[in-house]
Design a protein around this nucleic acid. Structure first.
Lengths: 242, 242
DNA sequence: ATGAACCCTGACAGTTTCTGTCCGCATTGA
DNA sequence: TCAATGCGGACAGAAACTGTCAGGGTTCAT
C-alpha cells in the first residue's frame, strides 16, 4: 500500500477508535511504529487535531472530529475572507500566502454545491485592480458604515439601488443603478453598475456616494458585459475567482 | 510537497471547483499533467467518482459527495487568514469587513484547545504596523519564494536561522538569529529577531535577506521582550491577536 | 474535415521519498 | 523505580514517484 493510501486509512482508523496506541496502529497498518509516527506528524501538519498522551494508559486520539465546519460560515463571511486573502496576496509577498490559498480551497470544498456555486458567481463579480495612483487617492473620503451594509445586501441579492453622487467637479446627481460588479483598488473601491437612467454602464467611487438605499425591484441578472465595458483593456484586472 | 499531501489537496481542489482540466490542476499543484493523471487514477481507485469528459469544452468533475467532509485547517492556514483579514481591515473600508471578523471568531472558536493555543501564541508574535512611508518603500526589492518557505518554518517551529543581510549602505553581513517576531507594514515586512552574534535584538527587512537557511538547533522560547525592544513606543503597533 | 482542446495510457531512467532500525529523550502511573 | 507510552533525529537500502516521450482516443467550432 502506498503511503498516500495509508494516510487516508490512518485518519479513518483514528476516527473510528476512541483512543489507540502507536503499536496498535502499526499492527493494523502493517508498518513499523516509526512510520506510524511519521504519518501522524503528516496528518497533524494537515490540521487534524491528533493528541497524544504519554505514560502508562496513555494513547492517541483524534480530538472531536468537529474540525471547522464551514457550513456555519455565511456566504458573506467566506467572500470576505476570500477578498481579504486575495488582496493581501496581490499587494505583497507575505509569509503564508500560499497557505491562505489552500485554506480557502478547503473552505470552498466543504460547501454544498449550491452554496459554492453562489459563492463562485459572486466572486467572479469582484475585480481586483492594481494599486491606485497618488492622484486617485488625493480626495479620499470616508465610507459611511450604513451605506456599506446597504451596498452589501444589494450586491449579493442583485437588487437595484439609488444614491446621490458627487462628481469630480462637485456637481451632485441622483442615480438609480444595478450593481453588477465591484472593483477594488485598495483602499479605494468602485461600484461597476448599469445606470438605469443613462441606460449604460457607469462606475462610481464608493466614497462619493451618499443617501444610498435599495430600490424595490426584482433581482437583475448579473452581466459580465457591464463589468467588461468599464475596465480599460490592457491593465491587470483580475477577478477574485475565475 | 509529498505525493500524499498532494493527493489530499487534489481532492479538495476537485471538490472546490465545479469542473476543471488536467492542465489547470497541473498548474495549481506544480506538477506535470502526467502526474496529475496518475493522482486522479489513485483517487478513483479510492472510490472517488471523478468523471472526465473528452473534447473541447470538456474537463474533470467530482460527482456527488459534497459537504460531507469537515474542514481541517493547519496552523499556518489559520494564521494566514487572520493576517490577511486584519491587514485588509486595517488598510481600507471594504464591504463585508465585519463578516470577516465574525468568520475569524468562528474559526478560532471551533479549533480544539491545543491548536487554538498554538495559534494564539503565534499570532501574538505578529505585529501589524502603520503603512510604510514613501521613503521606506523607495528601495523595495523582491522577496524570493524559497526564502519565504524557509522563514515560515523557522518562525513557526521556533528555529534559529542564518542569512546574508544587505545593510542600507550596501554593506553585506552574515547573520545568525532567532526569529521571535514579525512586523508587517504591508507591503513591507520585517523579522524581529534576536541576533545570536551581537547578542541583542535586531530587526531585518525581508527583501534585504539572501541565502536564508535553517540552523540546526533546539527550538528557542519566544520572548516578548525581544519584540518590544525593537518597536519604538508611541506608534500604533498592534499584535495580530491580543 | 481539420485542428484545437480535451481525456487516457504505456514505457523508461533518474531522482526523490519512504521505511525500518537504532538511538536517546520526556512523561505518566503503578 | 520500572514499564508503557509518546516524540523525534540519523542512516542506508529499497521502493515509489516523476517528467518526458509517444501513442491513442472524443468532441466541437470553423
Amino acid at each position: 500500500m502506498s503511503r498516500a493510501l495509508r494516510l487516508m486509512r490512518l485518519s479513518e482508523v483514528l476516527r473510528a477508535s476512541d483512543t489507540t496506541t502507536v503499536d496498535a496502529l502499526a499492527e493494523t497498518l502493517k508498518v513499523s511504529g516509526r512510520t506510524v509516527r511519521r504519518d501522524l506528524a503528516t496528518l497533524r501538519e494537515q490540521g487534524l487535531a491528533i493528541t497524544g498522551e504519554s505514560g502508562r494508559g496513555g494513547g492517541l486520539r483524534l480530538e472531536g472530529d468537529r474540525g471547522i465546519t464551514s457550513v456555519h460560515l455565511s456566504l458573506e463571511e467566506v467572500v470576505s475572507l476570500w477578498l481579504a486573502a486575495r488582496l493581501s496576496q496581490r499587494t505583497s509577498t507575505l509569509p503564508w500566502s500560499t497557505s491562505a490559498s489552500t485554506a480557502l480551497t478547503k473552505l470552498l470544498a466543504s460547501l454544498p454545491r449550491s452554496r459554492s456555486r453562489a459563492l463562485t458567481s459572486l466572486c467572479r463579480r469582484v475585480i481586483i485592480g492594481p494599486p491606485p495612483t497618488a492622484r486617485m487617492l488625493e480626495s479620499l473620503g470616508e465610507v459611511p458604515r450604513d451605506a456599506l451594509a446597504v451596498f452589501e445586501t444589494c450586491f449579493t441579492s442583485r437588487t437595484a439601488m439609488a444614491f446621490d453622487y458627487r462628481g469630480r467637479e462637485g456637481r451632485s446627481s441622483s442615480r438609480r443603478v444595478e450593481p453588477h460588479g465591484l472593483l477594488v483598488q485598495s483602499p479605494l473601491w468602485y461600484v461597476l453598475a448599469f445606470d438605469l437612467d443613462a441606460h449604460a454602464p457607469r462606475m462610481f467611487r464608493i466614497d462619493r456616494l451618499s443617501k444610498l438605499r435599495r430600490l424595490p425591484s426584482t433581482p437583475f441578472e448579473p452581466r459580465r458585459t457591464v463589468i467588461d465595458a468599464l475596465l480599460e483593456p490592457g491593465f491587470d484586472w483580475q477577478p477574485l475567482m475565475r
